[in-house]
Nucleic acid binder design. Structure first.
Lengths: 189, 189
DNA sequence: GCGTAAATCTTGACACTGTCAAGACATGGC
DNA sequence: GCCATGTCTTGACAGTGTCAAGATTTACGC
């Protein structure tokens, strides 16, 4: 039995295609301007198909955020295994945000998501646990609490958010990695 | 000639009333769920009145952001004059975000604003200048560049964003000022 | 193999949204 | 007193999320 992808009534993996389409759309206009109908058009299906798969708009964004947290955890883990260096994990944090803007922006916008979603909670806990391995203190729920870990997370996250919001001048925007390494080195752990 | 506020065709200070209504609405659902028609209803005017005053939805949000930056600068200036302490300015930064959530969220969401708006640019520059006085390095456009200033700003901003996004456990959320003072003291300036 | 239940996707409708043009009304200058 | 200007309303339009109902395909028990 051949799985006829892309032509018949059943799509094959529409869920996957819808998430990809959503990520593309988010990359262009941000998570808040996402339109379910535009996503449907992009994926070549009817206007109500996305809502069927994800319940509602927040459901689609929640799926994007969950996948983002998984990819995020992957990226941080890779760097930690390779270097064993806190600072490099921080740089990877920022790099992920720059290279995966759509995912990153969606991940940190809780008012657009279904907060209680178990899949999102699992992925969040995983990315927190990865951060924990790098910075050193979290409880069972993945809540970071040790002051040194909080300081590092806050510094890297704040720098990343300000950078992506266009709050820095060209001196900083041209070499964000170098600047982040510099300011990171000013933190007593 | 009596200025008949609140009853006749002309409103008196509808612009003011619309901004206040917008801030209320944003406080309830965030800037991205703001509805011009809901704002109009709240202010007791017709559905198209807000667009007349602010051009479009982004125009209203831009006005809110500009006013937010002014209030923000006021708050930081007060603390700096009173204490002359960097760390206390950082705490005031976070306090403002908590106490004026609607303003703060709108201020740092450039994709919803008219970036080129002169009034917004003026207010932004003012709040940057205030930050500069506290942390120590900015160019003529108000772009902070000195590493120590960047580090402090990033740390405080990141902590604030993570806190408001619900990313911390109860240990931190119960006494954010204390925690921020603690992690702030770990920064070599 | 077959028939029925379930899953997947479409269609059509509804209330709501931002935006625009045209009109109603009030105010200020002459 | 009259006209021009600014303020606000009204009505319309296309686009949005969401829901119910229908069409179509797959999966499963027998």
């Amino acid at each position: 039995m051949v799985h006829c992808v892309n032509e018949s009534y059943h799509h094959g993996d529409l869920r996957r295609a819808l998430i990809d389409a959503a990520v593309e759309a988010i990359a262009e206009g941000g998570p808040s301007t996402l339109s379910l109908r535009a996503v449907a058009k992009r994926a070549g299906v009817s206007h109500a198909a996305p809502a069927h798969h994800f319940g509602d708009k927040a459901g689609l964004l929640t799926a994007v955020a969950a996948e983002g947290h998984d990819r995020f955890a992957d990226a941080l883990e890779r760097v930690w295994e390779a270097t064993g260096d806190f600072a490099e994990v921080g740089v990877a944090y920022m790099r992920f945000a720059i290279d995966n803007r759509a995912y990153f922006e969606t991940m940190f916008r809780p008012e657009l998501l279904h907060e209680g979603d178990p899949e999102l909670a699992r992925a969040e806990a995983r990315s927190r646990a990865t951060l924990y391995r790098g910075t050193g203190g979290a409880d069972a729920d993945g809540h970071v609490y040790r002051a040194s870990a909080l300081a590092a997370w806050s510094l890297v996250h704040g720098f990343t958010e300000l950078l992506m919001g266009g709050n820095f001048g060209p001196e900083v925007a041209e070499d964000p990695e170098g600047v982040l390494r510099d300011i990171g080195s000013r933190l007593r752990l």
